[in-house]
Design a protein around this nucleic acid. Structure first.
Lengths: 223, 223
DNA sequence: CCTACCGATCGGTAGG
DNA sequence: CCTACCGATCGGTAGG
């Protein structure tokens, strides 16, 4: 219909393409994201789609970057108004679990999927995935250092160790939600994250009913 | 050359096909495993390959089953001679980390990759992945129950919670090894697993030098 | 277990 | 942003 569009119209189209690309890649993978399928869903020609990116790899990179932006918006930004250190870490963990349990991406955590898909395939996409995850890990570690300096963590707490553990728990929760549809994983993940932060002990032999309630919400699955 | 083979020769060929299929799928994914590529690497015709399985989905299922067998052989069996309960759990964790750090599969833990790839695609392959992971989780939980009954875990330890956490740590370690090539993740994973089992506290303020050495081997990455 | 072949789809380009 | 097209590869089958 309109062979030429203004720059802002072209940007809108580009965003519309990427939005759909994120949904497709979320379940089919960044490799399973095909230009033909994408064009069909958008009721565009393949050439119209690919013209915005040049080739598939650039489309993959743009799609990944948008998913990373979404992650930051869903997990990092909601916690950014909470005071730094342990309070912010607890807010991050809660937002993270909500993000994983929710339907932000139809196929679960985009970064985890992309990491599994590209961890054995050298190239720009793999590098971008590794870079995004390393930035996130560094942000967590930085916040852990703040908490440690404020004396909010247990005395010998190791920020790198705790950041590793928090990331692992998120991956475990993602698998539980996506593969097993196990909503009880939210409680497991929350308990494991709080243990890692030293907020709860792995097992507390003597604690108040309110503390127990905080650590194990009612919707937790039966053991 | 030989259009007809004996049953045992056919079985050998089938095993040879699956062996190569595991390697390819390990890095390219079970969907990226194509009959044409497989046939080329085996110096066979596509029809010769597909004849052993019927279609691609059956090939994927056979490949997955073989990878599961390998996991059991690498992680479960080495620990099966260790006394039940906590000692066996510790042996499992060590074998698990070795499996993840090693080169059993060129693309890292096959089950983790398959889980990420198929968690949003209903069908027999997804069901088989979920089933294998649930069996493994059940085996861990069963062993945790034995350990708890023997008083080897902390008093209020929750086997389901601990099994969740151990599985999560394994996924985190797999990502660290495969995506980041971070060998220090072995020490992080080991420490996190022992904390989950209550063997080490998340942080121990007062402990012997030998205990510190056990918890943090020299090859651990700097924090 | 092979050759020869099928329709469908892949990423991408030429030209407008 | 379109139509029309390219060679390559996909899963799979017929027939031997």
């Amino acid at each position: 219909m309109s062979p030429r569009r203004s720059a802002s119209e072209a940007l809108d189209t580009r965003r519309r393409i990427i939005g759909r690309a994120v949904d497709i890649a979320s379940t089919q993978g960044l490799e399973g994201l095909t230009i033909g399928h994408l064009a069909e869903q958008l009721e565009m020609s393949k050439a119209g789609v690919v013209g915005h990116f040049g080739n598939k790899e650039q489309l993959q990179l743009a799609t990944l970057q948008t998913a990373v932006d979404t992650f930051v918006r869903e997990v990092w930004e909601p916690a950014s108004t909470t005071p730094r250190g342990l309070p912010r870490l607890l807010a991050i963990c809660d937002a993270w679990i909500s993000y994983l349990a929710g339907d932000v991406f139809p196929g679960g955590c985009f970064l985890t999927s992309a990491s599994c898909e590209f961890d054995g395939r050298p190239g720009p996409v793999r590098d971008a995935v590794a870079d995004a995850l390393e930035r996130w890990r560094a942000a967590l570690r930085s916040e852990l250092v703040v908490a440690k300096r404020a004396g909010e963590l247990l005395p010998g707490a190791d920020p790198a160790q705790i950041a590793f553990t928090l990331g692992a728990i998120a991956m475990g929760a993602n698998q539980a939600f996506q593969l097993h549809h196990d909503l009880g994983a939210a409680a497991h993940a929350r308990a494991a994250m709080r243990t890692a932060l030293g907020v709860d002990r792995p097992v507390v032999t003597r604690r108040s009913a309110s503390a127990r309630k905080r650590a194990k919400p009612a919707r937790q699955a039966a053991g």
